[in-house]
Simulated assay, not measured.
Amino acid sequence: MSTATEQQPDQHSVPRVPTPSRWAAPPRPVWEEKPNPAGLASKGLVLGIACFAILFPLWIVIVTSVSSKQTITEAGGLVVIPKGITFVAYQELLSGGQVTRATLVSLGVALVGTLFSMTVSVLCAYGLSRSGSLGHRGMLMTLLATMFFGAGLIPTYLLVQTLGLTDTYLALILPSAISVFNILVLRGFFMNISQELVDSARIDGAGDFRILWQIVMPLSRAVIAVITLFYAVGYWSAWFNASLYLTDQDMMPLQNVMIQLVQKQQPPVGMGQAIKTGQLSALAVQMAVMVLALLPVAFLSPFVQKHFKKGMLTGAVKG
């Protein structure tokens, strides 16, 4: 039997909203939700336009480089639809003339420079990643200061000239051999390696060089591959040091020859007569040099692409 003091439920009262459990997953941001069909279509359209904007100019360069002089003349310049394909421009460029020599110079500078830069960068980054190393804090601050303050172009040129490096291949390597940014990325990756592995190796009698070679570097293949690509592309694409420190045309790398050919309209040595007589098209030669300059980067990038995300993001987590 109910008592008079028993309260009856109010039909007009506001229902209580259940309090979410503290173990419930937080709501995901909008950009992490699965897109609807319209969103997928818009993303596909944007990516398609971006790919077209990148690949279409490359297609024009390649097609023009393998086109005959008659096809280029009929097209009025750059060729879009291939017709009358010929590889005469590449045969003349790689027949042992200036472009062949410049290509070998660029390859040699890129290989030697990348090896030297990676050796110095890895050693410096490993030393800076050990907090107890000698002069650790002062060296790190000095490197960071060079990212914001530089000596300038004239002091750098005077230093290279005083050291007797002008008109030598070392002038293409040493002035830009070290990148502080790359060292910091390597250092951040090395600091993420488990300290227990290093300590156990020290207990077993391993020294710093053996720890670096057998433990740290095998665990850092991703970031080393990325930084190696950065250095290699930098050396391969460099032209400013050569234009500043070299006067001998036989020592010029491929990028400088391409600048002379495309911007200054100077044909490569030994090909001027063939271009004047109409045997070769100057535009086809220009496009062929561009393709030669792009080939190494286009060849290496797919092999290193899988390491980009892991190498860059992991190396930037801890500084």
Rank of each mutant, 00 (worst) to 15 (best):
L123S: 10
G135H: 06
Q255R: 05
S301R: 04
L219S: 08
V122R: 07
V66F: 15
R221A: 08
P18W: 10
T5Y: 05
L45F: 15
Q265P: 02
I49Y: 04
L158R: 07
M118S: 14
F190R: 07
D250S: 11
V14R: 15
L165C: 03
E92D: 12
I275H: 05
I259F: 10
V79Q: 02
P20G: 03
S243E: 06
P15C: 06
P57K: 13
S95C: 06
A171F: 02
I203R: 06
V262F: 06
V66G: 08
V317F: 12
M118E: 11
L261S: 05
A225R: 11
T247D: 03
C124M: 12
G164Q: 05
C124F: 04
G108K: 02
T166E: 00
F303G: 05
A282C: 01
F87H: 09
T166I: 00
G97P: 02
R202H: 10
R16C: 06
I62F: 13
W23C: 00
W59V: 09
A89K: 10
S42L: 15
S131P: 00
A177I: 09
K43I: 13
V269D: 13
F181E: 08
K306Q: 02
G96H: 07
Y231F: 14
Y231Q: 13
P20C: 06
Q265T: 03
D199E: 15
I49G: 07
I178G: 06
I275W: 03
L115V: 15
Q249M: 04
T100D: 02
S106W: 01
V185L: 15
V289M: 07
S243R: 05
K309D: 01
A25H: 03
F87N: 03
G270E: 14
D10V: 12
S21N: 08
T71Q: 12
L93G: 01
F190Q: 04
G96R: 05
V233R: 13
S67V: 10
G207T: 00
M139V: 08
S42N: 12
V46W: 12
A102M: 03
V14Y: 14
F303H: 09
S129K: 04
L219H: 07
P27K: 08
G39H: 09
G234K: 10
A282G: 05
Y231S: 11
P26A: 09
V112Q: 09
V80W: 07
S106E: 03
L174K: 05
Q265W: 02
L229V: 10
L172Y: 03
W213C: 11
S237D: 10
T114V: 14
M290D: 00
L172K: 06
A316E: 12
P268H: 12
L261R: 00
V198R: 14
V269I: 14
L186N: 13
A232C: 13
L111Q: 04
I215A: 12
V112W: 09
T314G: 14
V285H: 11
L45R: 14
D208Y: 00
G315V: 12
L174P: 03
P35M: 13
A53P: 02
